[in-house]
């Protein structure tokens, strides 16, 4: 593979698992995913009463023979899925403590899922956000499009403060039809404002997945001597004795994580707290398996 964030072995192993949508999608071509509209697939959806103007060819004559009433037989419509990967490119995503940089981990997740989506005939798009930049690669189903997707990811340089909230609101407004929105970020923003952005997406009936990326050092906060902490986003400097403030730090972080989780659940988002030392294959396998309808497990 040309890019270091793509693992051919991983992709071949995960290739057998389909990426399913948890809500009906509104695609522009036929595909593997359920649509809110009725269509002409082989999968039976429901009976409904005949109303004037319906196509008489869709009348179920057997049902008429049994009940002496006119019923229209409806079938599921299958459509394709459009996925938007929203990658936070703020300075904090450059942090690498005990694991790899968070941005690299985000690249690996986005690239792997995009490859799998395009491979199954769906479209994948990319949205990169900081406080100064909102770069978009529109979704496409073409295999050639993937190269643009990957090269944009490869050029990504985290810097500045986060622009995730604005990006989410923009996407919610901009995407007219239902889509699969995958958020890859450390979510270092106000949980209440994040909740509003997620509710905005939910209002537009998007299927939301959140990969909350954290470094193990950020969670464990294990230091043995004083450190001079320099903020990756705004350069704030703080000299502190970690052993003295570890308890308060962990308590504050726990509070933040539970608030974020609650906001995600409120917006019916699929929330995953991931540390950057987690192996990618089991993470994605579990993620994809959990999205499959119960009947396909």
């Amino acid at each position: 593979m040309k890019h270091d964030f793509l693992d051919s072995v991983l992709l071949s192993r995960l290739g057998s698992l389909p990426i399913e949508s948890r809500v009906p999608m509104m695609g522009n071509v036929a595909g593997k995913h359920r649509s809110p509209h009725r269509g002409s697939s082989v999968e039976f959806a429901e009976y409904r009463k005949y109303v004037a103007g319906d196509d008489t060819r869709r009348l179920d004559w057997k049902a008429f023979a049994r009940s002496d009433r006119f019923y229209i037989k409806e079938f599921e419509a299958d459509t394709n899925l459009r996925a938007y990967f929203v990658v936070d490119a703020s300075g904090s995503m450059a942090f690498a403590g005990k694991g790899e940089p968070k941005i690299q981990y985000a690249r690996r997740i986005a690239a792997s899922l995009a490859y799998l989506l395009v491979n199954q005939g769906d479209a994948a798009g990319l949205s990169i956000c900081t406080d100064k930049l909102h770069l978009e690669v529109p979704p496409s189903r073409r295999a050639a499009h993937l190269e643009r997707f990957f090269s944009t990811l490869a050029k990504l340089e985290p810097s500045g403060e986060t622009g995730l909230l604005d990006a989410l609101h923009t996407i919610a407004e901009k995407i007219g039809q239902r889509a699969f929105v995958v958020i890859l970020s450390d979510l270092f923003t106000d949980p209440a404002a994040l909740g509003d952005a997620l509710q905005h997406l939910r209002y537009r009936k998007h299927d939301i997945s959140v990969f909350h990326l954290m470094d193990p050092l950020e969670i464990g906060f294990e230091f043995d001597r004083p450190h001079r902490f320099v903020d990756l986003e705004d350069g704030t400097v703080l000299v502190a004795e970690p052993t003295l403030i570890a308890e308060e730090y962990k308590s504050s972080l726990r509070e933040f994580l539970s608030a974020v989780r609650a906001k995600c659940h409120d917006a019916a988002a699929d929330y995953q707290l991931v540390t950057t030392d987690t192996p990618l294959e089991p993470l994605l396998r579990d993620f994809l398996t959990a999205r499959m309808p119960k009947s396909k497990h």
Partner: peptide, 15 residues
């Protein structure tokens, strides 16, 4: 002290 680039600064400041 050792200098470290840190992301979760808001929790550190609060702590």
């Amino acid at each position: 002290h050792k200098t470290i680039q840190w992301a979760a600064m808001r929790f550190l400041l609060k702590a």
